[in-house]
Amino acid sequence: MRCYVCFEEILPEVTWSTFLLPQKVKKICYGCERQFEHIVPACPKCGRPDSTGLCFDCERWGMEQEDPLEQNVALYQYNDFAKDWVARWKYRGDYELLQSLECQLRSLFQKTEWDTYALVPVPLSGGRLVERGFNQSEAIIQSLGQKSTNLLRRTGTEKQSKKQRRARVASSNPFSMIDPIYTPVVLVDDIYTTGTTIRHAASLLKQSGCPQVFSLTLFR
């Protein structure tokens, strides 16, 4: 087995659990894996690192109106190594790089007990989809071994990354509903930055009758 990040050979660590559950074998070498940072302690609501209680952002979301999002869970911190990883995966389009996180992602998902909920990908606009050739949220859902439920359509553009946070929070909702849903939902995306994108999608889902919205991201 080769590391999906650096292509170096990984010496297999054979234990009873890897023997019985082959999907538990990590597809990343130790040297690469340790460059990702876990999120401890984290904001219980959005998973923001270095926060013992509810973080400032989440508190503010609750003040202005009822927060449409119940909870976000993320795998790792969005550090420099993660930024390079995302650049290669999403912008260069190295689809299979996600395999390096598959095993870790699956065990995180198991801990959440969200496996009966619908997994909803955050959609890309048509232009972005052609550029990259795949949707990152759907790739994550597939890597979890789950089926994605497409409930949302993107009407606006993604060109938000350069805008200030304030402008982003105030910007209008770039999504519209395809179908309503009346059971809990897990929104899936690659990065949770300010939470605006996810909350836009969440509020739309709740308005059309969804009781609870959670979210799962690779990085926070």
């Binding site: 689809y95 299979e96 949707n135």
Partner: peptide, 19 residues
């Protein structure tokens, strides 16, 4: 690597080395 390629609708091979 292989990926579901939205442009052509196939599962397509690509080069991870010079990406």
């Amino acid at each position: 690597g292989n990926m579901p390629h939205s442009t052509c609708g196939q599962n397509c091979r690509y080069c991870r080395h010079c990406i």
